[in-house]
Nucleic acid binder design. Structure first.
Lengths: 197, 197
DNA sequence: AGATACAATCTAGGGGCATTAGGAAAAAGC
DNA sequence: GCTTTTTCCTAATGCCCCTAGATTGTATCT
């Protein structure tokens, strides 16, 4: 019997592919081992356990998504950048539904692994950078970043879960929501409390 | 041995409680049976299988969340209603993290069961009703509803997953995001394509 | 009340998955 | 070539999902 040449990365990739094809909860040690032509126990030399594997898939997805966004917004600014950013986000969720869902699980990932992965950190930096065109000062900038990420994540997440009935194409609503976000960022409300009715 | 007096609803409730206490993926047939002082096999007289149980938990959560929102916005209008709606949403997610997460799973619920549950349908109606104060015409109204739901779901979801680093309190960002949504709804961008730069 | 029908729960068992421990075999180092 | 390390395997344990068939409690009918 030859050797399979497994590594943590190859196991993670197999798990990610399985997640996209069959759904995240079909990502089991057994299924991943089968896909790699290996016995389940063999995986434990490369991955601590199932939870660890799912965490690695989540980090892989974060890295990939960040990379796509970075490429998409390179050389763009303003609304162009906003739309490119958002479309790259949504497209990644469509192309890799299982990996994307992996990023949603309440995180309990090996901190050392997280430190090594550039994805999550860079994602936030990219968002800040992209929004800098709108000239928001802290803490408004942070709030805008969070609103932005919330809306994009919420939309793609609801869309994936079938949350939008088929009355109006989700695509159309998406475009309009981006218009709305752009408008909002250009007219971010002032922080004062007592605005006279 | 006396009888346990199980019903589908009691099984669902036990599952929901377990989801909130221990996390959705600790909701297993065995665990629910243990909590009810019953053997696992006994549950199958009331619930088709584990997937069915999770679907029922999701519907229960949808109903409960909708009810809370309905109570919160009763008698309110405009920004008052918006804030009450959003806070009720977020509060439900905080109070019942497991149930809330159950509503996120890609739905594969018994259609007959869904038809019987008022929650999901009513939730959409409530949102439309609340936004009617902003005088949006279709299809903008639908897009606004979707943006609204996306943002609220995305925020609570990211918050629950620990997506917001602790730099700025999530609570503060939440309040500002609601301000922003209100502003946006009052100044919803027109549908025209060619807006001159 | 006694017999009967119905439903709820249990016992028993098959099959899958996660995980650990220890052995064999391939690759790498000396 | 021999030793060491790494990779992968076999074996075994325990939990979990789910089905089938027996059993027992409750309601109904006469």
């Amino acid at each position: 019997m030859g050797r399979a040449g497994l590594t943590a990365d190859r196991v993670t990739l197999a798990g990610a592919e399985l997640a996209d094809e069959a759904g995240l909860d079909h990502v089991t040690m057994s299924a991943v081992a089968r896909r790699l032509g290996v016995k389940d126990a063999s995986l434990y030399a490369h991955v601590r356990n199932l939870e660890d594997l799912r965490g690695r898939i989540a980090l892989l997805a974060a890295d990939e998504k960040t990379l796509r966004i970075a490429e998409a917004i390179a050389g763009r600014a303003g609304k162009d950048a906003l739309v490119a950013y958002a479309n790259a986000w949504r497209q990644y969720a469509h192309d890799h539904p299982g990996r994307y869902m992996a990023t949603q699980i309440p995180i309990q990932i090996d901190p050392e692994l997280v430190a090594r992965a550039p994805g999550p950190r860079r994602a936030v930096e990219l968002t800040y950078g992209m929004l800098r065109a709108y000239a928001l000062a802290e803490p408004d900038l942070t709030d805008a970043v969070r609103l932005m990420r919330s809306t994009l994540h919420g939309f793609t997440s609801l869309e994936a879960a079938g949350g939008f009935a088929h009355a109006r194409p989700a695509e159309d609503s998406w475009v309009r929501c981006l218009d709305a976000l752009h408008t909002l960022l250009e007219h971010w409300p002032p922080r004062d409390e007592g605005d006279p009715a």
